[in-house]
Amino acid sequence: MAPAQAQKVLKMQATWPASRTLFENFTMFARRVEELTDGQVKIEIMPAGRAISAFEVLEATHRKVIDGAHTWAGYWQGKNSAAILFTGGPGGPWGMDHQDFLGWMWWGGGQQLVEEFYREHLKLNVVSIPVLISSPQALGWFKKRIETLADFKGMKCRQTGVAGRIFNEMGMRTVNIPGDEIMPAAERGTIDCAEWIGGVEDLRFGFQTIWKFHYAPSLHESVSIGDVLINGDVWKDLGRQHQEIIRAAATEVLIKWWVGWQKQNADAVRELQEKHKVHVLQTPNEIHTEFLKAWDRVAAREAERNPFFKKVMDHQKAWASSVVPAKRLYFPAYRIAADHYWPEK
């Protein structure tokens, strides 16, 4: 009989607290890895701040302070603006939905560009695997109705990263603060509006106790995908079989958790409307149109400054130029059947 292998324990930290639904995705992933390896690989999961601060997980994984992280590449935009494109990015990106974007990642060479990004451009020894879909996201919470772009302009709103730059381009005054600081800022009246994710995540934060106008959808994160990071040396030590199990577990969790999360969001929207008397309203089309125009300007400027951003953008657009027109032809618009069976009240 072959000797039993020693159990491998990986210490990994998230960039969000344990109270967030996103951490539940992390828990599901760790549990599935342990099940599929028959206990040979165990992931010890930690919420944000347990070992290091939330936004230090990338460097900490590289330096092997922790073995890995459960996070979102958009947080690394300050290191290289191309980071946002590996999450999906604004506008779809380029009209793509989740299926299209994952097709690019898995079949179109996107994952190879992710590896190039971390290895050659950030000079970090990490492996990235998609595991978390937290989209589509809402436009956010407002203290008053937003009926036109003019109503949108001049408002002081919590928003982060490239989305904040796009909304600034549209006339909003954005404030970049962590999620846990949104409620205190709202209570002090220092912000007029805020975006986090939407649905169940926003309900858990308690935004409905501050604001009563909630708008969706939005194009700033209509596709938003998080990943698991694992230190490169730790990854090699796992061996081929366990590497493949981890990749398979991540893919399974990405899909299974996401479709369950959508039901959580549906239940949350109903609670917001019926219990908390929140006005859940459709984002005006004018804001969507102006958002895409603003994103095109921001992306063009970024492509001029950052050759790798341009490389990834052009690569995504080439994939989108094929799959988006084909999907528009074959996939019926969601509203056709939805409006027939569940007309808006």
Rank of each mutant, 00 (worst) to 15 (best):
Met1Trp: 14
Pro3Met: 15
Ala6Gly: 12
Val9Trp: 03
Phe26Pro: 00
Phe29Leu: 02
Arg32Val: 03
Thr37Ala: 02
Ile52Cys: 11
Val57Ser: 01
Ala60Met: 06
Ile66Arg: 03
Ile66Trp: 03
Thr71Trp: 03
Ala73Tyr: 02
Gly74Asp: 06
Ser81Pro: 09
Ala82Ser: 08
Ala82Asp: 01
Pro90Thr: 08
Gly91Cys: 10
Gly92Asn: 10
His98Phe: 12
His98Glu: 12
Phe101Gly: 03
Gly103His: 04
Trp106Ile: 03
Trp106Phe: 14
Gln112Arg: 11
Val126Tyr: 04
Val127Ser: 04
Leu132Pro: 01
Ser135Met: 04
Gly140Phe: 08
Lys144His: 09
Lys144Val: 10
Lys144Pro: 07
Arg145Asp: 15
Lys153Arg: 15
Val162Tyr: 07
Val162Glu: 06
Gly179Met: 09
Arg188Ile: 08
Glu195Tyr: 10
Trp196Gly: 13
Glu201Asn: 09
Glu201Ser: 11
Glu201Phe: 03
Gly206Ser: 10
Trp211Ser: 11
Leu219Met: 13
His220Thr: 14
Ser222Ile: 10
Val228Ala: 00
Asn231Arg: 02
Gly232Met: 04
Asp237Tyr: 06
His242Lys: 13
Arg247Pro: 00
Ala250Leu: 02
Ile255Gly: 01
Gln262Val: 07
Val269Gln: 13
His276Asp: 08
His279Thr: 07
Glu286Pro: 10
Leu292Gly: 05
Ala294Thr: 11
Ala299Gly: 08
Ala300Pro: 06
Ala300Glu: 15
Asn306Leu: 03
Val312His: 05
Trp319Met: 05
Trp319Arg: 06
Pro332Asn: 07
